[in-house]
């Protein structure tokens, strides 16, 4: 399995230029809002979540990861008609978890990225459903088929998308 345990010194930390750090989440949000109108199946994807995982794993900083997650999540909430904070909380937890994992494991290859995204997609959905049902009292339906399908699809997309986004990385 490509996931390998590394010491703190071996793990490379990356940073991103300001335009990349701002534009990548905005483009992800824009595509997430625009494409489902034309391609209905696209609503299964969660591009903002993938961007959160990518930034968190690359930066390997828990504070940076959770702040990125919170910010992207809040922006995602703003486009819905539901209370602001549901996606915010879910993405904060994912950002914290992904950056914690990234600090300990080498998750730079395709297989590792697939598994990490699969895991954090599940975490995201569990947190989202818990908050939406428990705090906001939304009536949501949990469908195992839908969740597993979504997790596999997003994980496969992450494996490709992260390779493209690697071009924006800069060594810290």
């Amino acid at each position: 399995m490509p996931i390998t345990y590394t010491s703190q010194e071996q793990v490379e930390v990356y940073r991103f230029s300001a335009p990349a750090a701002i534009l990548i989440p905005l483009v992800a949000l824009f595509l997430q809002a625009f494409l489902p109108l034309r391609l209905h199946f696209f609503s299964l994807f969660d591009l903002p979540l993938l961007v959160v995982i990518f930034f968190a794993v690359a930066r390997r900083s828990q504070v940076s990861g959770m702040l990125t997650g919170a910010l992207i999540g809040l922006l995602q909430d703003s486009l819905t008609h539901q209370p602001i904070g549901i996606y915010g909380i879910a993405n904060t937890v994912v950002g914290f978890g992904a950056s914690s994992l990234g600090a300990k494991l080498d998750v730079e290859n395709v297989g590792a990225r697939f598994l990490v995204t699969l895991f954090f997609y599940a975490v995201h959905e569990v947190v989202y459903f818990t908050v939406a049902r428990g705090l906001v009292k939304l009536t949501l339906q949990w469908s195992w088929g839908h969740e597993i399908g979504g997790a596999l699809l997003n994980a496969a997309t992450a494996a490709i998308l992260f390779t493209l986004l690697d071009r924006f990385k800069q060594r810290a």
Binding site: A70, G85, V93
Partner: peptide, 24 residues
């Protein structure tokens, strides 16, 4: 430190949610 920050961020958002749900 990081866990504290995480809890703080989550707490702020939960607080924000609570305010919105009440105001809705």
């Amino acid at each position: 430190r990081n866990v504290t920050i995480l809890v703080a961020i989550l707490f702020v958002q939960v607080l924000g949610l609570a305010v919105q749900v009440k105001r809705r």
